[in-house]
Structures are given as structure tokens and as C-alpha cells.
Computed example of a mutant assay.
Amino acid sequence: MNEILLDFFYNRRKKVKKISKNLKKFIFSVALGQLFLSSLPAEASQLVKANSISQLFVFGDSLVDDGNLYDLTNGESPPSSLGYFNGRFSNGKVFVENLPEDLKNNGFGQATLEYNSANNYAIAGSGINYNYFLENSMGLDYQINSFLSAQFSPSSQALGIFSTPSIDPDALYLIAVGSNDYYPDEDGNLSFDVETVVGKITESITQLANAGAKNFAIAGIPDLTIAPALNGISEDEKEFLKNLSRQHNLTLQIALDSLQQEQELDITFLDFNRFLKKSFNNFANIQDACLNLATANQCSDPNDYLFWDDIHLTSYAHTILAQRSVEVYGESNSISVPEPQAVFGLFVVAGVSLLLRNKPK
């Protein structure tokens, strides 16, 4: 028996030495994993890939207008006497005014990032190339061209020297438009089709990208039928508008994905339809307006209501939109890395694989 054992250990001596050597590698792998684990911060499961945002520029309609239409109409629209807040189509600030602080608080903004009203080109009533309040061409197309023209120095403008302007590549460019182009007129006709509306939005993104923009947040449109203004329409009309909203958002997402790949842009799609539906539980009333325009009466607590008037959201709803937007922006502009425990596990597996690969046969 002893001779058999001696023979066994004699013949296996080289393999045992090899296993011992690999065992040391295994121990080293585990130790290295533990060292790596201890060096990771608690929030290391995601790393921000986008540049920290330096500024916010805004284009769109009443959802993001912070008082431009009010100025253009000399304070007539929307009327402050009915409770509209400082030219906003709401009872308080609109969501883009909260966005810079929320971005900064979540690690996506530079220390100097703050809301600047001068960077907001949105005008309530805007469609892609028409303004339905003003009945003129002050739509998205006008806003983009106004912004790009403003980037030329006064001296170059005076001399008539115009070339492609260079704009801040670290800024976030937000576009929220589309809904106004889909509300049917008195005869039930739509102003534009989905392909035309989405085409103009992507054209505007390309204009900005050609001037140096890299970071975009593009808003989809909500379900058009949830607005109190449309409470009385027929089921067939509701189904048509619901499908129109879905078609717009799907077509827009496909177009944005294509743009992002072709031009190497960071584009975040803000699915406002989903954002609002997820927030329904935050409100006691999602069907009626807080402000009755016919009687000029207001509800006792606007925070209970999703809608301020028949079409526009309450300021509380805007606050939620800002929070949801930052959450999605974070998901879109971060890259996932393994959780610390998973990283540690990878080192352990690597060590075990060395042992198994060289185990005695």
C-alpha cells in the first residue's frame, strides 16, 4: 500500500507543482479582485459618458415657453389676471426652468450651469414652421434660424459676413414641438402629416449639429386625447388621435436613432407620453382643468390637478416632467459597468478556470 502511494505521488509530482503554481495565481486573482472592489465608489455601477452640460438652449411651443409669447403680445397672452404665472402657460414655472438645477444635482451639469431665459427661443403656439397663436411663421424653423443668426458677432453682421456659426458643443439643445401641428381644424383636417413634422424636427437637429451641437434632448408628444379640451370628442376621434400620437413618437424615435449613429450625436428621447402616464397617481384629478376659462374660477389646490387649463399642465406636473427627463437623460448618457460584486466574481472565476484547466487527469 505504501509503495502504491509513493508511486502515485512520484508520478504526480510535476502536476502537483503545476497545480500549486496555479493555486497561487488563483489566490492572486482573488486578492486582486478584493483590492479592485475596495477601490470602487459605491455608485460605480454607471459612468457618465457625456460631457458635463454647460448651458441649456430651448426651442418649442407652450410646453417650454417661459414668456416669449407674452412679450410678443405685450402681456395679453396668456392673461396674468386668470392666474397664469409671468407669461407661462401654467400656474408656475415650466419644466425647462427646473432642468439645469436637476441636471447639476445629478452630476450631469457643470458647476456654472443655471437656467438662462435668454437661451429660451420657444414661442407658445409654435408648430414646425407656423405659429397658431400669432398666425405667422414663428414656428420651430424660425426659432432655430433666429438662434443661429444670433451666434454671429455684431461686427460680422454689420459687414454682412455670414458663414456657418460655431455654437457651444457642451450645451444641451432641447426641442419640444409637434402637438400643435396635429390638432384638427374646425373641418377635422390636420395641418401636417407625421413624416413632415418629424422631418422638420430632424432637419433642425441637423442644422444645430452642423454648427457644432453634440447633445440633444428631443421631446415626444403626449397622448393628444388626455387634454380636458378633448373630453367631448367621439371614440373614433379619440382612437385616431391616440394612434397619431403613437405614430409620431415611434417615427421620431427611429429618426433620432438614425441621426445619432450617422452623425455621432448624443440624443435623448424624452417620452412625455410615458412620463405623464407614469405620474397619473401623483394627482387626484387627471381629467379636468384646474382653471375654468369660461368662468375664470380656479381649483383650491392646483397640485391636485394634472392640467392647469384645458390643454396646459400645472407647474407641479412640470416639476415631475423635469425629474423624469433627468432620469432618462442619465440612463441615455451613461455606460453600465459591472456591479462591484460582479467584478470581484470575475476575478474569482478567472482564478478557478486556471485550476480546472490544469486539474489532474
Score class of each variant (00 low, 15 high):
Ile128Pro: 01
Pro41Ile: 10
Leu47Lys: 12
Ile167His: 09
Phe57Val: 13
Pro184Thr: 04
Gly125Leu: 00
Gln341Gly: 12
Phe280Val: 06
Ser204Ile: 13
Leu113Gln: 02
Ala322Lys: 04
Glu203Ser: 10
Asp102Gln: 14
Ile205Phe: 10
Arg357Gly: 12
Ala296Ser: 15
Val326Phe: 09
Val58Tyr: 03
Asp181Leu: 01
Asp102Leu: 15
Asp168Ala: 15
Ala50Asn: 14
Val48Gly: 12
Leu35Gln: 05
Ile167Met: 12
Asp168Glu: 03
Leu293Glu: 15
Pro222Lys: 00
Leu259Thr: 06
Asn249Met: 06
Ile221Arg: 00
Asn116His: 14
Asn180Glu: 12
Asn119His: 13
Asn116Tyr: 11
Leu250Asp: 15
Ser45Val: 10
Tyr305Gly: 11
Leu190Asp: 05
Gly127Cys: 01
Ile53Ser: 03
Pro360Arg: 11
Leu250Pro: 01
Met1Leu: 04
Arg12Ser: 15
Phe272Arg: 01
Ser137His: 07
Ile27Pro: 00
Asn297Val: 06
Asn116Ser: 12
Gly83His: 07
Ser62Arg: 00
Gln143Pro: 09
Leu306Cys: 09
Glu43Cys: 02
Leu174Pro: 04
Phe192Ile: 06
Gln110His: 01
Asn119Met: 10
Gly199Asn: 03
Tyr329Ser: 06
Tyr305Lys: 03
Phe133Asn: 06
Ile201Asn: 00
Tyr121Met: 13
Ala209Val: 08
Arg13Glu: 11
Tyr329Leu: 08
Arg357Glu: 13
Ile335Pro: 02
Ala42Ile: 14
Leu99Lys: 04
Ala171Trp: 02
Ser90Ala: 12
Leu259Trp: 04
Gly212Val: 08
Lys359Tyr: 14
Gly345Met: 09
Gly351Phe: 00
Val326Glu: 04
Phe85Leu: 05
Thr268Cys: 15
Thr251Tyr: 08
Asn11Trp: 04
Lys214Asn: 14
Met138His: 04
Ala217Glu: 10
Arg13Ala: 15
Asp271Cys: 09
Lys15Leu: 11
Asn2Ile: 10
Val197Phe: 03
Ser315Ala: 15
Tyr173Thr: 07
